[in-house]
Design a protein around this nucleic acid. Sequence first.
DNA 1: CTAAAACCTGACGCCAACGTCAGAGGCAAG
DNA 2: CTTGCCTCTGACGTTGGCGTCAGGTTTTAG
Lengths: 125, 125
Amino acid sequence: MTVTEAVGERLIRIGEVARGAGVSVRAVRYYEEQGLLIAERSPSGQRLYRQDAVTLVRFFQQMFAAGLTSRRITELLPCWDFGHTDAEQRAMLRAERDRIQAKVDDLQAALDRLDEVIAITDTHP
Amino acid sequence: MTVTEAVGERLIRIGEVARGAGVSVRAVRYYEEQGLLIAERSPSGQRLYRQDAVTLVRFFQQMFAAGLTSRRITELLPCWDFGHTDAEQRAMLRAERDRIQAKVDDLQAALDRLDEVIAITDTHP
DNA sequence: CTAAAACCTGACGCCAACGTCAGAGGCAAG
DNA sequence: CTTGCCTCTGACGTTGGCGTCAGGTTTTAG
């Protein structure tokens, strides 16, 4: 139940994917351009997606927000689609994890500094 | 003791500021371009900074890492240099604070998802 | 005095994730 | 049939924080 899904599944078009995930149609096309989300095509050439494409796009958004590039995501996709992971991929996963953790710490520090200033400016009106 | 500092303070040049803060010379010039860090000039035209410029540049870096633009930082600089803050500035401070907090939450969520995958790929070698 | 190192002012280059526009076809409803 | 919305390809534009190169002046070390 990964790529070869049950037959006769209801397929949706790009607009529905975009609205469902809260992104633009252009963004979804871009993901295909980058090899993140490959779609079937209707006889007339329109893209057709399985419903879980919406979930996948939301996931991409989350990873983008975490600072991963589309290239990195494609390199790590096998870790999701299949359980397959080699040593290199595990190393990349850890590296990204550590990078994000460091970023969280940086943001927290910045947050604390802003809170200091807010406290001061609130008591000194 | 904010802008008008004690006379006879030792002034430093741009390279020392850059090395001290761990950024490039180009970056420091860019900050001036954006109105973040105004320097005095020697008779020959070289930029001269007070030592605390190093601290200031580090602060800029921290704010950049938190996602603030140079424009935003210039708008908020009065909150540091002087204690002066009007209602608009306080609102901006809170808005940035909330944005950063939301970003921290997003990153934490992404981190959790990555940790899930790491746990799975580690138990399924 | 001289050569290296540091500084100066432009000004173009870069990257990633799209936005946006142009021009053309496809699809359900009335 | 045609109106109106959705979709297609292709291609250029945007944004921010610098990198980098060119060509020239200045400061410093020996």
